[in-house]
């Protein structure tokens, strides 16, 4: 490929990645202001982030709400995706559109809807309210992931299992579920992240008590008073960085094995075939 295109791509990649890295040095800043470079370094922001209830409570809340969202979303998305892929029924297109609707409607519109509706149901400032709202937001993506996996699933293995004596339930437990487990995991992970990162609905309906981490961060950024936000940002960014590296690692390992397989001949080619 053209060296100019390569250079351009690297420049753009730098623009995409670089700004986020500034949160790491900032998190060690001893100043309460946004001064960069920081006048001095300290761990105080991290100490605050992990001990100040103003931050630990939202972190706990967000984790709990995220887990609740995963359960709620999967409870709805799994049957729905099986219906969408494996059944032909009247209203299937409408059903599909209904599932995708939360991805279409802007979150701020839903925020005002939930604010009013959950206010009447007394679900404002409750875990349940946020979980229900976040599950709606997470549902389309999780369902898309599941349906894609289900479409690629060869149903004759289920028939084989039943033919060999497994009841429908046992077939699901021993065959369908284990084969689809990676897709279930990814769908669940998407649901968790959708909830954990969701700011707008959390901002309006989680309230002081059940404040989510994004809400706390939003307010901290808006008020520019609490430097702990730098540690929170850095913490979240490092989490993503670690996640992306973990995702990358198997690919690097696989390439390494493939290279070995090429140089060593037949003997080492076997593990490469097994991992790919």
């Amino acid at each position: 490929m053209n060296v100019w295109i390569r250079s351009l791509a690297i420049l753009i990649a730098a623009f995409v990645a670089a700004p986020m890295f500034i949160v790491i040095p900032m998190s060690f800043s001893s100043a309460a202001s946004l001064a960069f470079p920081p006048p001095g370094y300290t761990l105080q922001n991290y100490v605050n982030f992990f001990s100040d209830p103003n931050w630990t409570q939202p972190l706990t809340n967000s984790l709990l709400i995220g887990l609740g969202t995963v359960c709620m979303t999967m409870l709805v998305a799994v049957p729905a995706s099986f219906a969408l892929v494996r059944h032909v029924f009247i209203g299937r297109t409408v059903f599909n559109l209904l599932i995708m609707l939360p991805m279409i409607v802007p979150t701020i519109v839903m925020a005002i809807g939930y604010y009013i509706y959950f206010g009447q149901l007394r679900l404002v400032q409750s875990y349940l309210g946020v979980i229900l709202a976040h599950s709606c937001i997470a549902l389309p993506m999780s369902t898309l992931i599941l349906t894609a996996a289900l479409k690629g699933f060869d149903r004759s293995v289920e028939r084989a299992a039943m033919n060999l004596g497994a009841s429908p339930f046992t077939t699901f437990r021993l065959i369908t579920f284990p084969i689809l487990r990676p897709a279930f995991t990814v769908a669940g992970l998407f649901a968790f992240i959708a909830s954990f990162d969701e700011a707008v609905i959390g901002l309006f309906i989680s309230g002081r008590d059940k404040a989510t981490l994004p809400r706390q961060m939003f307010n901290a950024v808006r008020q520019e008073a609490d430097p702990t936000i730098s540690a929170a940002s850095s913490f979240l960014f490092l989490l993503v960085l670690a996640g992306v590296c973990i995702w990358l690692a198997p690919q690097l390992v696989r390439r390494r094995t493939r290279l070995l397989g090429q140089t060593d001949g037949n003997g080492a080619a076997q593990p490469a075939a097994a991992t790919s």
Binding site: S156, R159, A160, A161, M162, N163, L164
Partner: peptide, 18 residues
């Protein structure tokens, strides 16, 4: 139901459990 028939079957694409 299929699982109570005690019939062996070899499928077109083998349908081995991956």
């Amino acid at each position: 139901p299929p699982h109570k028939r005690n019939i062996g079957m070899v499928f077109q694409n083998y349908a081995l459990f991956p």
